[in-house]
Computed example of a mutant assay.
Amino acid sequence: MAGRTIQATIMHLFPSFSLRRWAAVVLVSTLALPTLAQSSHDQELFETQKRLSVGVTKFAEARTALKAFISSRAAWVQKQEETPDQLTAEFTLPTRRLGQLDSLAATLGFVLENNLNAHTLGPRQQELQDEEKTQADDLAATREQLRTGKPPKEEREALLRQAERQETSLRRTQQKLAALTSNQGLAYVSLRLYDEVSFPTGNRKVSFVNMPGVEYSYLRLDNPKPGLTSRAYQGYAIKYMFTRGKSYFNLGVYKPLTKSEGEEFVNELFVINFGQDFYPRNFGRGRRKFLNLYTSYQLGGFILNRNNDQGNEFIPNLNLGLGVELLKTRHILLDTKASYFVPLYSRSRDLRGILGQASFNFVF
């Protein structure tokens, strides 16, 4: 109804089509400002579009900083929505400010997505100009037909409806052309900020890999017993990593550094464990190529063998440790860690100690 009122007002005040066309632009710009604003921020009318997704661990502080940036630097905010663990916004930003936005995002947390698309608007502008001319000619022809002819009532009503549709299409095209000019030097930004701790995201999904490898271990006991256990054991294991998490199995044998002929002497530990490593939130979350810090646990057990081949038994154990990835690429991983080796049985005091491990894995 508002559109018909505007149309009737224009036709009554401006009988000439050229004057009506000029008046339509003015009236639409003032009376239909929300529609123009929405149209002017159509992404296709910007030379640069940017999509940015950032995961943060301190969501409240990051949200405040980002909202302050948008409030002070955005040319126009199209949408801004908030939930307890997510902020989404669409706004226009001078292209010279995009570097500042990237710098801010990098300081807030981990940038999951940062896509920039740029293209020239010349062809689109020419397309709209041609479309405007065609629509204006079509509308002029319809108006001329209404002015000079004397069609029946039904046909005249059909022509009026056709003229109304043509006016609407012409107005939208003119708005887009005006937006192309006003959007020069601006980028359309679609931004998503989320709480990495509570919000499920693509990077939280389990990502399986096939990374076999080898591991060297050195176990130094806290309370070795002469004739029963060596002061230290060392050995090698196969370490198979199956998620980027990292989750893995290892299977190996530890041998004593000093041997004894005593029948009760422990001459071999055959170990099998399931382990997982966890990256700290404030130290890169394991995304650097060098020196990624992590914590770990291994849960499994070992078969304890003695010289007399009697009393061999399976003993569960738990290792809690701290490690560093020395080198990490898409294809290889070299890391080392130290943990406390704790047998979970009544005589754990005899075999518990510090366990050092170094491993090399590769994508197979």
Results as ranks from 00 to 15, higher is better:
334 L>T: 10
16 S>V: 06
237 A>G: 10
358 A>Q: 12
339 S>K: 03
180 L>V: 13
170 L>P: 02
55 G>H: 00
255 K>I: 08
150 K>P: 01
18 S>G: 09
195 D>F: 01
293 L>H: 15
215 E>C: 06
141 A>H: 11
313 E>I: 06
199 F>W: 02
229 T>Y: 05
327 L>G: 11
344 L>D: 05
345 Y>L: 08
176 K>Q: 15
145 Q>H: 10
47 E>R: 14
162 Q>M: 14
352 R>D: 05
259 K>M: 06
6 I>M: 12
328 K>M: 14
257 L>W: 09
324 V>I: 15
261 E>K: 09
94 P>F: 00
291 L>T: 14
44 E>R: 14
293 L>W: 11
8 A>Y: 00
175 Q>H: 11
328 K>T: 15
34 P>I: 05
211 M>K: 15
29 S>T: 11
161 R>Y: 11
239 K>W: 03
352 R>I: 02
37 A>P: 03
346 S>H: 14
345 Y>F: 11
314 F>H: 03
57 T>E: 09
172 R>P: 00
238 I>N: 13
242 F>I: 03
189 V>W: 03
244 R>G: 09
358 A>S: 14
230 S>H: 01
350 D>M: 07
359 S>Q: 14
104 L>N: 01
170 L>I: 05
303 I>M: 08
59 F>I: 01
117 N>P: 00
335 D>G: 14
348 S>A: 09
238 I>H: 02
92 T>F: 02
121 L>S: 15
330 R>F: 14
44 E>Y: 08
166 Q>I: 03
116 L>G: 13
229 T>N: 04
61 E>I: 00
342 V>T: 02
155 E>P: 08
251 L>V: 13
314 F>T: 09
266 V>N: 08
134 T>Q: 07
227 G>M: 06
321 G>Q: 00
247 S>R: 01
241 M>Q: 15
119 H>D: 13
331 H>Y: 15
297 Y>Q: 09
126 Q>Y: 13
279 Y>L: 01
338 A>Q: 07
280 P>N: 04
230 S>T: 04
26 V>M: 05
63 R>E: 11
289 K>H: 14
140 A>M: 07
40 S>D: 14
355 L>C: 05
83 T>K: 13
6 I>W: 06
176 K>A: 13
198 S>F: 06
173 T>L: 09
175 Q>K: 02
49 Q>H: 12
304 L>F: 03
361 N>D: 12
144 E>Q: 13
139 L>Y: 01
67 K>I: 04
348 S>L: 04
340 Y>I: 03
24 A>I: 00
244 R>C: 00
232 A>Y: 00
360 F>S: 11
272 I>C: 05
212 P>W: 03
354 I>M: 07
211 M>W: 15
18 S>R: 10
16 S>C: 06
260 S>Q: 03
348 S>V: 01
283 F>P: 04
65 A>Y: 00
245 G>I: 02
156 R>T: 10
120 T>A: 15
294 Y>I: 07
191 L>I: 10
48 T>K: 12
56 V>K: 00
96 R>I: 07
31 L>T: 06
65 A>P: 00
184 Q>R: 15
205 K>T: 13
89 A>P: 05
18 S>I: 10
80 Q>F: 03
168 T>D: 14
355 L>A: 02
225 K>V: 10
157 E>G: 12
63 R>I: 05
81 E>Y: 10
154 E>H: 15
85 D>G: 09
289 K>R: 13
160 L>G: 01
260 S>F: 07
25 V>I: 11
251 L>G: 02
48 T>D: 12
195 D>Q: 05
296 S>H: 07
289 K>M: 12
6 I>H: 02
